[in-house]
Design a protein around this nucleic acid. Structure first.
Lengths: 196, 196
DNA sequence: GTCTATAGCGCGATAGAC
DNA sequence: GTCTATCGCGCTATAGAC
């Protein structure tokens, strides 16, 4: 009957939203306590330090993302459809709330010098996982014939992932969410077989 | 005979380096004063506030960048060569010092919610200028025949610029500068006519 | 598990001497 | 133009009552 998540979860939710908007260095315990509706020191009962909070947040985020990627693989037949669904994730990020949220790990990757070693490893693990996922998807797509491109799948994967992360940052900064769709459409063109 | 720049310039240099490494929110007057070798309050003599410093920095950066872009246009004949030279700028950013510097405006675009309106406008102006430069370059290249791609030049320009910005963030986070060259090579593939 | 109170520090910024 | 001294604030974190 109680559909409100527990405090720990609500703290993580607030922290994630704040980091995706302003970055780690732009987020404070005060901001979190305002959103969650508890006092600042109460946060320390759930997370000993700010670093611990960020590490826990990354752990949850990567778990959720893994499930999402599995869903994409299962729910779509062709690699092309899977790629479209994957890119949709990034477009959707910009459609939440005030349209000012970027990818959590893209944001943290930009601020990587402010992170503790554990958080740094988690961010880079996320980046690597994504490029690997894309790389396998491109490989399969090329074999299927639903995708076509020059060069190695791993290199095209790096390029596509970079474009999606950069696209989020640029589109959000300029307050033009539709620019994200422009980037994904152009990416799709770049790996699609000629229409003829 | 005095080859050391004046204090104002050295403050801007320090601020730029710090922002490209840690972002605005990760940079402080203390950091600047340590690098420049003056006391914290002395900075206020040159820049009334932190916002003023950031705005002045962006003004200088955009002026310098404009000159660089003109140089690229003049020094290279074909659009393809100009594109290669442009992308080289992003690779070179990652080759400076400890290889942990990103693009100033890419960093600030990620932290755009922490900027004053003037700085925000300057960052977005920089982004727009770059996409426009690329867009014209792609248009000319297509007409020349040195470049070839599907879709509109403006849309391909958005995609390329996003990939360069995202590529910087990812490669830097993972401490793999060579990944930046992977991205630029793949981008070049995507706008090059078939070798045959 | 949440609270009040507070420690301890770093921040941007100001005042005023030199 | 740079300095010392300091203000006022916000931060993360801790101590201890309830």
């Amino acid at each position: 009957m109680n559909d409100r998540p527990d405090t720990r979860t609500r703290i993580l939710d607030a922290a994630q939203e704040l980091i995706q908007r302003r970055g780690v260095n732009g987020m404070s315990f005060k901001d979190i306590s305002d959103i969650v509706g508890i006092r600042k020191p109460s946060i320390h009962h759930h997370f000993a330090s700010k670093d611990d909070l960020v590490v826990a947040l990354l752990q949850r985020y990567r778990q959720q993302f893994e499930v999402t990627l599995e869903g994409i693989t299962c729910q779509h037949e062709t690699a092309q459809e899977q790629l479209i669904a994957y890119m949709r994730l990034f477009e959707q990020t910009l459609q939440v709330g005030d349209q000012d949220q970027s990818c959590l790990c893209g944001m943290l990757a930009a601020e990587v010098l402010s992170l503790c070693p554990h958080a740094c490893d988690a961010v880079n693990g996320f980046l690597t996982d994504n490029v690997r996922f894309l790389s396998e998807l491109l490989q399969v797509g090329r074999e299927q014939g639903s995708l076509q491109f020059a060069g190695e799948p791993a290199e095209m994967a790096s390029m596509i992932f970079a474009a999606l992360q950069g696209g989020l940052i640029v589109a959000r900064s300029q307050a033009q969410p539709q620019q994200m769709a422009v980037v994904t459409r152009q990416l799709l063109c770049s790996v699609s077989p000629p229409v003829a």
